[in-house]
């Protein structure tokens, strides 16, 4: 999956729910449609909730991957 070009990175490790989703949403709103955001999230509720909520907002999720104790969520901004 090294062909995905990441435009922005948001490190939300240590940021609790629902602030992590709010920050993700605001970041996506500041970006142009089609641009790609990588979000770093804690294990447990954060990765579960932010993934579900980002999907519900209509963005395209390209990849969800566990790294060393945290998660990478890669999202393409929708219109």
């Amino acid at each position: 999956m090294s062909d995905i070009k990441i435009d922005q990175i948001l490190d939300l490790k240590g940021v609790p729910c629902p602030m992590n989703f709010v920050k993700t949403k605001l970041k996506l709103e500041s970006m142009q449609a089609g641009k790609i955001l990588e979000v770093l999230l804690d294990d447990g509720e954060p990765i579960k909730n932010v993934t579900a909520s980002t999907k519900e907002e209509g963005h395209e999720i390209l990849k969800v991957e566990e790294k060393n104790g945290y998660w990478n969520l890669i999202v393409r901004k929708s219109r």
Binding site: I47, K48, L62, K63, V64, E65
Partner: peptide, 8 residues
């Protein structure tokens, strides 16, 4: 996409 969240 094999993310494993469902199992989690």
């Amino acid at each position: 996409i094999h993310c494993t969240l469902c199992a989690k």
